[in-house]
């Protein structure tokens, strides 16, 4: 069964890039433009196996999203990766503290992305 991955990023370019890579690798992809949208989708029954979220977003950023996702029933254990740049080490750690599993460093190349996903998603 193909795994579902949710991408949360306010940059449509980033979403499109990740989405096409993931879909090419057989994943199902859900997208959201910010934390609020993501939460709405999750509450509405979307059940991704993995969430990849940007940190800096309007309305609700990635860190707040992580906090909120962890509080949702059914998402206690869902792996969450943050999308960061190399200069955002502090954000990565903060994300980890709030319940993120790990992080991706932008720009994320296709092979890197798949590699990391295979690392955090058993059966992917």
């Amino acid at each position: 069964m193909s795994k579902t991955i949710m991408i949360v990023d306010d940059s449509a370019t980033m979403v499109l890039s990740l989405k096409s890579t993931l879909e090419m690798n057989g994943f199902k992809v859900e997208t959201a433009g910010d934390g609020v949208q993501a939460l709405t989708k999750l509450k509405g029954g979307v059940k991704p196996d993995l969430i990849i979220t940007d940190i800096n977003m309007p309305n609700m950023g990635g860190l707040e999203l992580i906090k909120n996702v962890r509080a949702l029933p059914g998402f206690r254990f869902t792996p969450i990766l943050t999308l960061t740049t190399e200069s955002q080490a502090a954000k990565r750690d903060e994300g980890k503290k709030l319940g993120a599993t790990g992080w991706l460093v932008k720009p994320v190349s296709g092979p890197d992305l798949v590699k990391v996903i295979k690392q955090v998603l058993p059966g992917a």
Binding site: S11, M14, S17, N56, L83, P107
Partner: peptide
């Protein structure tokens, strides 16, 4: 300032693609 940073940051992230 944060908003500005976010915009530049996003743009840079995208350009890296």
């Amino acid at each position: 300032m944060n908003e500005l940073f976010r915009l530049v940051h996003t743009l840079k992230g995208n350009s890296g693609l």
